[in-house]
Design a protein around this nucleic acid. Sequence first.
DNA 1: ATATATTTTAAATGATTGTTTAAATTTATC
DNA 2: GATAAATTTAAACAATCATTTAAAATATAT
Lengths: 203, 203
Amino acid sequence: MKCVTEKSEDKIREAAKRVFLKKGFDGTTSRDIAKEADMNIALTNYYFRSKEKLFLEIFKDVLEDYFQNMLTILNKDIDIKAKISEIIDNDFEMMKKEPDLIIFIMNEIHKAPQRLFPDMSIFRQVRETYLKKQLEEGAANGTLRPMQLENILPLIKCGVEFIFMGKEIHKELFMMNDEDFAKYAEEQKEHIKAMVCNYLVIG
Amino acid sequence: MKCVTEKSEDKIREAAKRVFLKKGFDGTTSRDIAKEADMNIALTNYYFRSKEKLFLEIFKDVLEDYFQNMLTILNKDIDIKAKISEIIDNDFEMMKKEPDLIIFIMNEIHKAPQRLFPDMSIFRQVRETYLKKQLEEGAANGTLRPMQLENILPLIKCGVEFIFMGKEIHKELFMMNDEDFAKYAEEQKEHIKAMVCNYLVIG
DNA sequence: ATATATTTTAAATGATTGTTTAAATTTATC
DNA sequence: GATAAATTTAAACAATCATTTAAAATATAT
């Protein structure tokens, strides 16, 4: 339940997030943000000192959000097939809800990686999950193809994220409208689940 | 063999391509291009009328290059496993040679799809390749899992392109340097080949 | 109610943006 | 070698950029 009169600082932060996600850092002006927040242009710098600082604050939140749900799932004590399915479903819902998210993250990091990795303790957390132990045990007892986390995790995530990142090009290339694409994406999601599980799980 | 004194128009075009690929349309200024080309700032507009027109010209070339090799391979009369392997190898080499290419294409299309799809006859060509016939025949005689081109093609391409698009985040997440990443990418490439072939080809 | 602190405003800052101008220079044509 | 065309240049254009200023408005504290 939100307060009806939101604090100006939060209004700006949320407006900035929307604009940055849509247009990227370079494509966003301070005036875009002020207009989206319906606030005076000077307030951005009054509360956040600079466009850069505001961006960094938002980017950190966005990146942590991106990893947070996945992290929870990776640590669940469930069968590995169910886990893969859940990660993919979670990713899929995230992409549907926030279509600009993944290309935004990828592009901003690609353009200036050094400035965007502060103390990302979430990275360490991702490296050390229960899934890692499951992979080791499965490889040891022969139920899973021997693979490291860094090999299997991108295989799980790339399928869904790739088609959403390239939504417009896929639509154009395969002559789909938005409705077609929605159906197509669901199909594709199931292919990915099956393909990855078939590859990882032996027998 | 190039002429020693390159035409100014070509110098600008090539310089602009380098800068656009690296910084994107929004992140590139006319002065960046002029500086990279070592030419006077006014020449960009003298030859190309505007930054926008220069960009559109370059983007069209880039997008056609991206599809051209793949198209040739898709039409080859070779076994489908070999074809998948070749597409992935080709993609891999393209990403290694031009690391900014795929994120550039994805991001620019994502931000403004409508302006970037002129008469892309290459799209139709991609839809109608020999691979399509192979998929139909394979599905009919039971050697291949029944799949459409639009389902299998992204599965083939996403693995390699995803890790190169997210190179920096993968390096940071899994604590790799450039050398580690190069080895890792090669490993990953083989996983992708095996995974996709196992899924598509029955038995 | 008055004084103080906080927030918001309109206006301006100087730098940079894409683009244009008109003159200077080079190249091509006769 | 003179004339015309094409190319290149330095300088300027108005618009917009991120940011700052100082005054006005509002809220808080006493």
